[in-house]
Computed example of a mutant assay.
Amino acid sequence: MPQEIEIAVADLPDCRRCTAAPLLTARFPYSWQNARDEKVTGFREVMLCQQCDRGTPAADALLALFAVDSQLDLANVETFATLVRTWLEETQERTVDLQLLDMEWDQWQRGNL
């Protein structure tokens, strides 16, 4: 069954990581197993930020499109769709880096973050 994915490119909240203006957001169904091994379903929202998301091929390609074409129109909508699809495939596979999370939690508790 295909997933419904909502893409937004206007009226976006600031990036949660750096407070810059993101270029787009995507919201999609997401699920995981909790500690009791029960499936928990919900939605996940990701942002494409030109400050925070550089460095992966899919994000870099989409960022390049926004740098060249500041507006979506009939001339670039197919390219946009392909690049967003590729970026989402990459983004949906990302998981939390538990070591980094533990390190940041420790820093936060000591008042260093």
Rank of each mutant, 00 (worst) to 15 (best):
I7W: 09
E38G: 06
S31V: 05
D97T: 09
F43T: 14
T86F: 06
E104G: 01
A67P: 07
D97K: 06
D102E: 14
F28N: 01
M103W: 12
Y30D: 10
L100C: 05
M47L: 14
E45F: 10
D60N: 05
Q107L: 15
E78P: 01
F66S: 02
Q50T: 04
E89L: 12
Q3F: 08
D97Q: 03
N34A: 02
E38M: 08
W32I: 08
A64W: 08
D53T: 09
A75Q: 11
R85V: 07
V68G: 02
V84H: 07
T79K: 14
Q3M: 07
E4Q: 14
Q109R: 13
P13R: 15
L72K: 03
R94V: 03
T19V: 12
N76W: 13
A75Y: 10
A58H: 11
V40S: 01
C15K: 01
R16N: 03
L48M: 01
A64V: 05
Q51V: 04
R27D: 02
L72P: 08
Q99R: 14
S31Y: 07
L62D: 00
L65A: 11
Q71F: 11
D60S: 00
Q3E: 10
L72C: 07
A75S: 15
K39R: 15
L98D: 07
R54H: 04
T95A: 01
P2V: 13
N34K: 06
L101M: 14
P13D: 12
L74P: 09
A67D: 15
